[in-house]
Structures are given as C-alpha cells and as structure tokens.
Design a protein around this nucleic acid. Structure first.
Lengths: 227, 227
DNA sequence: ATGAAAACTGAAAGTTTGTTGAATATCTCT
DNA sequence: AGAGATATTCAACAAACTTTCAGTTTTCAT
C-alpha cells in the first residue's frame, strides 16, 4: 500500500490496550494518529486535530459512540468507522444511518481495518491523492494551498477552508448558515456576519472587485461562478 | 466534501430518540434538517425554515399531528409525511384526507422513509433535482437562477419566487389571493396591489409588453401562457 | 356613452440585508 | 511575555428590495 503522508486518524476507545495496539499499527503504516479515551476528549481533539478518519468505539462510558458520531458528522466531512462488539450490532449501526461510513465487528484483524480505512479515504477524500483542478482553481489539500490562475493565494486557515468549500460546491447557492456549519463547525456560537467578513477578504485576494466570481444572492447566500 | 442538495426537511416528533435518529440519518444523506418536539414549535420553525418536506408524528401532546398538518397545508407548498403507530392508523390517515401526502406505520426502516421522501420530492419539487425546463424558461433552484430564452434574469428574491410559482403552474389561472398565500405566505398582512406591482416588474424584465406571456384574467388572476 | 371596479404605473417611503473599516479579542509563535 | 497573525465583533453606511400610495388607464356591465 502506498505511503500516504499527512493523513490523520483519531482513535476513540475506552480500552487502553486496544487503543495502544491500533495506535502503533497505524503510526507504523504512516498515518498521523491521536487517541482519546472518551467522547468529550474526542470532540475536543477533533477540532484542533482535524482528522480525516475517526475510528470510534460504540460502547463507551459517558457520551457514547453514537453521540460522538453525530457531532462529528454535523461538523465536517470526516469518515467515521464504528467499532462494535458482536452482540452490540444493532440496526442503527448496520444501516449506517447514524452517519457512520462503515462499521466493524470486534474482534477484527488489523489488515481488515487498514483496508477499510484506505477504502474510506479513497472514497471521501479523492483530493488527498493529488491536487484538484476546478476551473482556474488548483486545490492542493496536502499543502493546504490554493492557486488561482496559477498564483498561490496567501490564505489564513479559515480563508482556506472557506474558499475550498465554496469552490468545491461552485454553482450552488450556499447559505450563510450552511457555510457556518460546514466551515466553522456546528457549534460555532458567533454571528453570521463573520461569513460576510471572510467573503470580503476572499474577494479582495481574488481581486473579485465586481463580485462576479463570488456572487451574492441576496437573502439566499453566496455562489461561486466559474468562468 | 459531501454533495449538498439544498433540500430542507422538518422533523416533528415528541420522542427525542426518534427525532435524533432520523435527524442524523437524513443529515448524512445530505438534507438540511431541523427538528421540533411539538406542534407549536413546528409551526414557528416552518415559517423561517421553509422546508420542502415535513415528517410529522400523529400522536403528540398539545396540538396533534392532524392539526399541524392542516395548518401546514394551508400555508405552503410542502410535502407532508405522517408517522403513526400500527394501532393508530385510522381512516383519516389512510385516506390521506387531511392533506398529508403519504403516511408510514412505525416501526419502519430508514431506507423506506428515504424512498418515500425521494418519491415525494420528485413528485412535488421536480425542480429541486437540478434544472427544470419549461418552454423558454430554465429554472435552476440550486443556483437560484431563472433563464428566459437562454438569458439569465436578474431577479430579486420575491421576483424569483413569484416567477417560479407562475411558471411551474403555467396554464392555470392563479388568483392574487392564492399568489399571496403561496409566495408571500399565509400571514402576509399587506394589500393585494403588491402582486400587481411585482407582476409588472416581471413583465418588464421579460419584455412582455403586450402581456402575452403573463396574461391578466380580469377578476380572476393571472396566467402564464407558454408559446 | 358612462360610471364603477379592477388593474396598471411611477415614485416615495420604509425596511432589510450586505458591505466595509476599524476596534477588540484571541491565538501562535519565539 | 510580547509581536505578529488571525479571528471576531461592531456600528455606520450603502445598496437592494419591499411596500404603499395616489393618480391614471382599462374593462365591462348597464
């Protein structure tokens, strides 16, 4: 399997043994790994770590896997793989209705887990396998870099995420609420005005003086129109 | 990043578990979801959220599902799917006499619900699945854009909604009262004259100088006639 | 033909929403 | 701790949109 740099995995399980076992294995495989022993910790880490994949035990004390999964899914595009004991497999898990993208029944082989992880990544983050070109934009997620008309844009982290979101969804009207949910996270407490402020900043950097590139749909939101 | 559909669903049920379960599943499916635990709340949310589909439990404390359904149907063009326990299925539900468009007996599988939702949407909001072509009009709701004879019309939000309503119902006479109800909302307090004002604005933008496209049926309303 | 009702129109007044510059707060390095 | 970058809020402003109003025109029944 190819060496993927910069793919981040968050492990959540209350059993230290399993946690350590998986952590070592995945690190050895070249992933960046962080661990949490409970739901609350997981959520905290999630935001600063921004993993691509979360591996999540269903049964945990405190906030259980379902709840954690829900919060994750609301927040961002993250692949979630749930782990469950054989006798816990209920329909919620089976149907993957809770937002999880895959699940595995314990005990499982490490190889099997790896296979699923790669499947998820390939499926959900095609842009991690190279840069995506969308019109005049080149998005290189590994470098956290966006080029516009072959010029690298100097973007702050938030600007980067926002522009990526807008460009990947070009042609669609994106409401400020939706933008806040997806870029700032479901739990952002501030004002919608911040979206407007960042849009301005992007327009400045894109020299989009007449708002042709990032259009305002008054009352509805914003839409990126590619030439 | 997941594909955004821009289809909004309002869930109404007094059981938090079911509510949460469905919310997660539907969000994961790409819908925009809001929830309410009782009828009053539902009505309030309805107005600002403007969902395309409402999923409504029949049995609720306070205002029951039937009542809520009636109000919804009066107010807006929304698909309603009712949920009922097996032993509650009375003829009112069966006959769909109350304005509901479909009903489901609990317990049901998530897949089944999804299927029904899509059936409803396809039926009631074909334009949400991308662009709809009706004569010389192209309505693209996801872009919030209407083209006429391949020219993009510059429309204000209200103009957009009004023209969409007229074109989707072309060939039918639409009274000012009905237009007010559907486009401005059942609770609009102003004068009917505003419809006339907006019709004029649309005629201007469509260059419909002789009123051939948007016909006035004196005493009855307006009708869009496609060539 | 004539008058009343309905529809049309231009412009003013009112309201909402988005834009902007700057101030403040927070974070991230060294 | 302090500097610089980044994030967030705020309030004034501008622009776009909505609604009303009053005068005019059209329509239609008498």
């Amino acid at each position: 399997m190819q060496q993927l740099k910069g793919i981040k995995i968050l492990l959540v399980d209350d059993e230290p043994n399993i946690l350590q076992f998986l952590e070592l294995g995945l690190q050895n495989e070249g992933f960046e790994v962080q661990t949490a022993q409970d739901g609350m910790t997981a959520i905290t880490i999630l935001k600063q770590f921004q993993p691509h994949v979360v591996i999540l035990d269903v049964m945990m004390p405190g906030m259980d896997g379902f709840e954690v999964c829900r919060m994750i899914k609301k927040m961002d595009n993250v692949a979630v793989i749930m782990l469950t004991a054989r006798d816990e497999v209920d329909d919620r898990v089976k149907g993957l209705n809770l937002g999880a993208d895959d699940y595995m029944v314990k005990p499982f082989s490490f190889e099997e887990l790896l296979a699923r992880i790669y499947a998820r990544i390939r499926n959900q983050f095609p842009h991690l396998f190279g840069e995506v070109v969308i019109g005049p934009f080149h998005i290189d997620d590994r470098r956290k870099e966006i080029r516009y008309e072959n010029r690298v844009l100097e973007l702050s982290p938030t600007e980067y995420e926002l522009l990526k979101f807008l460009v990947l969804n070009h042609g669609l009207v994106l409401s400020k609420t939706m933008i806040l949910d997806k870029v700032w996270g479901y739990d952002f407490a501030g004002e919608e005005n911040i979206v407007e402020v960042y849009i301005r900043s992007l327009r400045d950097k894109l020299h989009d003086k007449d708002h042709q590139l990032i259009r305002t749909l008054r009352g509805s939101g914003y839409r990126v129109d590619l030439p």
